[in-house]
Design a protein around this nucleic acid. Structure first.
Length: 264
DNA sequence: TGGTGTTTAGACTTGG
DNA sequence: CCAAGTCTAAACACCA
């Protein structure tokens, strides 16, 4: 029995749920997040079955994105306006599919209320920041370089393996910025690194000169760390060897991307 | 105005 | 058999 490949489905409906297809699309993207239109494109590119009746399955797919906690909507960067947000997988959802099988999930991925509230608060803060940023930029535009923030889609790079370091459950409280603080590059790295030393011998006390509340709890950094710990290492453990018997994906995760298993 | 996102509802499938 | 998971449809709101 030949291995199922993405090409072998032809016009047949692939044995993947919409959740799995969406996760696959997100997973395959370099930044681990995609706008809705790109998710559509991933699916239609790879599975000819979905090139027809688009209204039906796209409605279902959108339903799944909204309904399932495993998908997280990430606001666009303020300097990259466009239609719709980016979608990513919740960090705890990376192991949602048992042993890499995307046929059926173990169980529904459900956030506890506290977790959901916390996540919503983060995203709401990010959206608020966007609005405040745009309002301020309308008065005094900032150089574009200041916007190379990795907090927004699609600038987060989850696929690149960070330098080896002990990875623990992200302590979001520890990642909260302190106030007041001087203006600095608005990147996660910049926000997390120690305050830059100043050349002046007696630096003035920090002034509350940053009128914008910085977004709290860099959720995306947590996602990045979780990805490194649970997905990148995951590739070394399994390569979907039971692909024929149980219909596992013809892909495996490697270096942050999906590779084709045919020929393994 | 069309694409996007949310919500509800019901039917069907699957696993325990 | 029941609960969980999935699929489909539909209505509606929001926004670029």
């Amino acid at each position: 029995m030949p291995r199922p490949t993405r090409e072998s489905y032809g016009d047949q409906k692939p044995p993947f749920s919409y959740i799995a297809l969406t996760a696959m699309a997100i997973w395959s993207s370099p930044e681990r997040m995609l706008p809705l239109s790109e998710i559509y494109r991933f699916i239609t590119d790879r599975f000819p079955y979905y090139r027809r009746n688009t209204q039906r399955w796209q409605n279902s797919l959108r339903h799944n994105l909204s309904f399932n906690d495993c998908f997280v909507k990430v606001p666009r960067r303020p300097d990259r306006p466009g239609k719709g947000a980016y979608w990513t997988l919740h960090p705890q959802a990376f192991d949602m599919f048992e042993n890499g099988s995307l046929l059926r999930r173990r169980k529904r991925f459900k956030l506890h209320k506290g977790e959901k509230d916390s996540l919503n608060a983060e995203l709401a803060a990010l959206a608020t920041f966007n609005r405040a940023f745009l309002a301020r930029q309308a008065n005094a535009p900032l150089p574009a370089a200041n916007l190379s923030s990795s907090m927004y889609a699609p600038a987060v790079t989850i696929c690149s393996r960070p330098s080896p370091e002990p990875i623990e459950a992200p302590d979001t409280a520890a990642l909260l910025p302190t106030y007041p603080r001087p203006r600095r590059a608005f990147t996660i790295d910049a926000l997390l690194e120690p305050e830059p030393s100043r050349s002046s011998p007696s630096p003035p006390p920090p002034q509350p000169q940053c009128p914008l509340p910085l977004p709290p709890a860099p959720y995306l950094l947590a996602a990045q760390r979780f990805y490194y710990k649970n997905v990148v290492d995951f590739e070394d453990q399994i390569r979907f060897k039971r692909i024929n018997k149980e219909g596992y994906l013809p892909f495996y995760a490697a270096n942050g991307t999906l590779k084709d298993c045919r020929g393994l």
